[in-house]
Design a protein around this nucleic acid. Structure first.
Lengths: 221, 221, 221, 221
DNA sequence: GATGAATGAGTGTTCATTCAT
DNA sequence: AATGAATGAACACTCATTCAT
């Protein structure tokens, strides 16, 4: 956990640290990132850095958590009414929000990706796992609501659906980020609709129209 | 590029090198991986390693290429007949093949994931990009065929569809890998069908049934 | 020298500092000890510490001096009567006192040992040397008294005898400290008598009974 | 454990490393010693050092072991005949040998002292403990032989007697080392006799002449 | 053809200490 | 009087790579 001093620190300095760290971690992943490089780019002394953060992992966790929290804060509240339509409207709202956030903070999108990778890798940090878990739980609650109004299929493990949504979002996000310069604002909102559609396709309950494949994965659900 | 000497090397030694490298890279990513650790675990001399491979990047590329090639070799040939049904049958065949491969080489699945991440990161290596590009082109050709028989939507950029297929596969692959012990052989083929279904959902052309969302992202495609 | 402010400090705080320092120095020696760790464990601010003590060496010296002084304060007064018997009785009194002190302050025993080592090492601090010198002078005066009443041999350099007494005490002290849990109170007083006996053996003048060895080391005493 | 490469190393280089390490450890103790300083003074590269030794502890242990082994190699064999006189003659032989060794390698004497301290401190290394244990066991066997011929008292725990012998030797050794320049060769052999006498005093069985003090420490021996 | 000794810049982290407040 | 933020040199150790043999 970062020292409380961090929050007493000049916001500009703190921003400089977070930005330098986010960029380094996003570019090189956790293990590949150089603490020294971050320190140098943030323009702080070595000692100061260790005054704010316990170690490299702590810095990573703190920055990642911050990014996730920042995003989450902007997300719209859960839908007041309960219906499939309301559910999808809410999904759309979330996606718009996320895309907008990503457009304004491309580095943070990359950082989120790096975080996810890190989580998948063999050297996962406990604190990072926590951040990811929180993030997943949020989606899980969301999907559960979707299942109750019949918007989300119930024949697949939630954990898998969560992962799919996670990854669809990241993939489209990355695809967008790579073409950010050439996309108009109109393109972006179209991209939002497209992503929403894709998620809908993935989550929608199986019906006669689409065949009977992939009903359930585990024999004992 | 690895030295031609590599291919004259005792296959067991070569396998030891590849296996050690794959594991290290899969666990730590490219930058986080330790060349020394690989050398040590492979049980070869330091000089020998630099005798076979130019450097760390070369080893990485070589191993990754090998894994991709290995997999590709096993993939079924493109469907002889051309029809939507044949296309999906072929997709299913591919997926079964990939899942089988992943079950037998879990390390390689992790390595592929690591490769993908590496590609996404900011420090992409030219050679690795080449491997990934080749792999993507294969999918792209596939999807183009699918489009011709009306199995794959044509209203989204191919590059995005390729990415989505890529990532769906990896996600389900990882989801499976994490639960490999608890899944029966029957579960696995069910998972194959499920993944196929998901890909179908993602690729299928938009129709009246599913609304008009996400028609196209770029205004001038 | 510590600032006079130290003595105006809340005794509890001061005790906390001394205790933390004693433990750290005892465990790691002077050079190995971490000033930061001491500060942290004492629960005082960094500035405060440098407000009370000049530096690490000053803290060390102060604490060590305190421990020596504490012990010395409890030691019995020199024997009023002058005779060999009175001398040995006094020695015994001292030893009992020291053993009791050590039992109650095992950390301080370790600290004394660490001090001694430090003195032996190549980086001796002037102030510490002073403390040790004072302590040695005390023993020296004692031994000189013993010589006058014929209780202590006169054929060896006093400095050597002092060292031997010093070290016998520390060795038995350490031996006891290591087994403190298993020794009864009775064992302890037996240990006191034993140590006294050992010191007597070492100091007693050479006589015909014990041979002529070790008469004198330096040809010109 | 040091790498076997160490023993393939140019003896001069190895000696340089050992000497630099011995001096540094002797002067600063284990924790206080600077690996960097040793490397610098030994005139080897950083990498090379870690090529020979696992880490700082390994270097310490290796050097210490070497010193102990060196000394031990020179020690005279155990006495052929068994009698108190032979025992004491053997003790004398050992002491002469040790004093001679110390005169020629004053650094190593200091290192031995540092080792002992280190062992006493709270952060003992397993390997170092092993070296000390071996050394103690040697003395213990010796004393046991002495007890059998009635030369050594049996009323005190052997572990304590061992410690006392250990420490007497070190103390006299240090006392000599400090005055090495002013002592003639004759002084040295006189010192040897003196130390032998002191050890005799400490070990000799209690007899009527010396009173009944210190018979046994533990109530249940 | 193949080795493994050697390198020194790099790693993340801790150090004793200072000084503006 | 007292704080705690800040420093940068030093710490033990690892890195990818070279090269004489």
């Amino acid at each position: 956990m970062p020292s409380p001093r961090l929050f007493r620190l000049d916001p500009d300095k703190r921003a400089a640290i977070f930005s330098a760290a986010a960029e380094e971690f996003a570019t090189h992943g956790f293990e590949g990132a150089s603490y020294n490089r971050i320190i140098e780019r943030a323009g702080v002394s070595k000692g100061a850095m260790y005054y704010y953060f316990d170690d490299k992992a702590d810095l990573f966790t703190t920055v990642v958590t911050d990014v996730f929290d920042q995003l989450e804060k902007d997300l719209p509240p859960p839908p007041p009414e309960v219906s499939a339509a309301a559910f999808w409207r809410s999904v759309h709202g979330h996606i718009d929000c996320i895309i907008r956030y990503g457009r304004e903070n491309p580095t943070y999108v990359a950082l989120m990706r790096a975080t996810h990778e890190f989580e998948y890798s063999g050297v996962t940090d406990v604190a990072v796992k926590e951040v990811c878990k929180k993030s997943r739980e949020r989606i899980e609650r969301f999907l559960r609501d979707g299942q109750q109004v019949g918007a989300v299929r119930g024949d697949l493990p939630l954990s898998l659906l969560v992962e799919l949504v996670f990854v669809l979002d990241r993939t489209v996000g990355h695809w967008i980020a790579e073409r950010l310069d050439e996309l108009t604002s109109e393109d972006l909102s179209r991209a939002g609709r497209m992503l929403c559609d894709q998620i809908k396709r993935v989550l929608r309950p199986a019906d006669s129209h689409h065949g009977r494949d992939g009903r359930s994965v585990k024999s004992t659900p």
